[in-house]
């Protein structure tokens, strides 16, 4: 018994202070990418070919824009521009309410706003989610599971993962949606009682991620499923997911209203 208490004392309390601080990252951490148009004169060729993802595209006007949803957070995405116009910040917050909110000329995203008053009154203090992995690598699932550990402790915000879609207020979809999971994704969504939320987690669920273009995947959550929250990452850091969920629920001070 004494030894038991000694170990308990040694382990201490490790819960993150997030959202009141607690989001410190090491120097090499690759958070939200940004694009410095001042460093790009638009004349040197080859950056788009060197880009290993669809992070950087040229918009209708020929101007470069970043799609944070397509970002694989790979070092090669930054080195693709020889002038260093693409860099990774240490900012972990980048979840949006719309797909378009992830697209911008400079990597600034439209951070998620809170649900409307009715939905907030339903889910704001108690949200039950069902996880559906569909053509993923288990990276995003690892981070969703990590949200349950004592450090991130998702449950302290009233958010929990439940065993059945029938018990859930929403789905968290990960993976590029493989042909073999297509049907199961729809059926799980249909089994979730309305009103329901859909949260797309990770580059795969947003646009196919590293598997984009494979004949066996749908390049992410199908268009006809209404997504309420898009959380980029490969995989997203647990705090990126937590930040997005708290913004959606109106639980972050600067995101209220």
């Amino acid at each position: 018994m004494f030894e038991f208490l000694r170990v308990r004392a040694q382990q201490g309390t490790r819960t993150s202070r997030f959202p009141n601080g607690g989001a410190e990252f090491p120097e090499r951490f690759r958070g939200r990418p940004v694009f410095d148009s001042g460093k790009c004169d638009g004349t040197c060729p080859g950056c788009l070919e060197r880009m290993p993802s669809a992070l950087m595209t040229t918009g209708p006007t020929g101007r470069v824009r970043l799609d944070v949803g397509a970002c694989l957070f790979a070092p090669e995405e930054a080195t693709a521009c020889e002038h260093g116009a693409v860099t990774f910040t240490r900012d972990c917050g980048m979840a949006t309410r719309s797909r378009a909110g992830l697209l911008s000329p400079d990597g600034e995203v439209e951070l998620a706003t809170a649900l409307d008053a009715r939905m907030q009154s339903l889910f704001g203090r108690s949200l039950r989610l069902r996880s559906v992995a569909a053509g993923s690598c288990n990276g995003c699932e690892g981070e969703l599971a990590a949200l349950g550990n004592v450090v991130f402790d998702l449950a302290r915000f009233g958010v929990q993962f439940v065993a059945s879609p029938r018990h859930a207020d929403g789905l968290v979809i990960t993976g590029a949606v493989s042909a073999n999971m297509w049907d199961a994704v729809y059926r799980t969504w249909e089994a979730t009682p309305a009103p329901r939320l859909v949260i797309a987690v990770g580059a795969c669920a947003i646009n196919g991620g590293p598997f984009r273009g494979s004949a066996e995947v749908a390049n992410g959550v199908p268009d006809d499923l209404p997504v309420d929250l898009w959380i980029p990452g490969c995989p997203p850091h647990p705090l990126t997911i937590l930040d997005g969920m708290l913004r959606l629920l109106g639980r972050l001070p600067d995101a209220a209203g």
């Binding site: 290993p52 053509g135 990276g139 493989s178 073999n180 494979s214």
Partner: peptide, 27 residues
């Protein structure tokens, strides 16, 4: 259910993209 066509991608993607697929065989 998780079949994403990894082997075909590793056969056809150029080297820089292929290593990102290899990193995602099992996350």
């Amino acid at each position: 259910y998780q079949h994403r066509g990894v082997e075909s991608l590793l056969e056809t993607r150029e080297r820089m993209r292929a290593v990102l697929v290899a990193e995602s065989i099992a996350g």
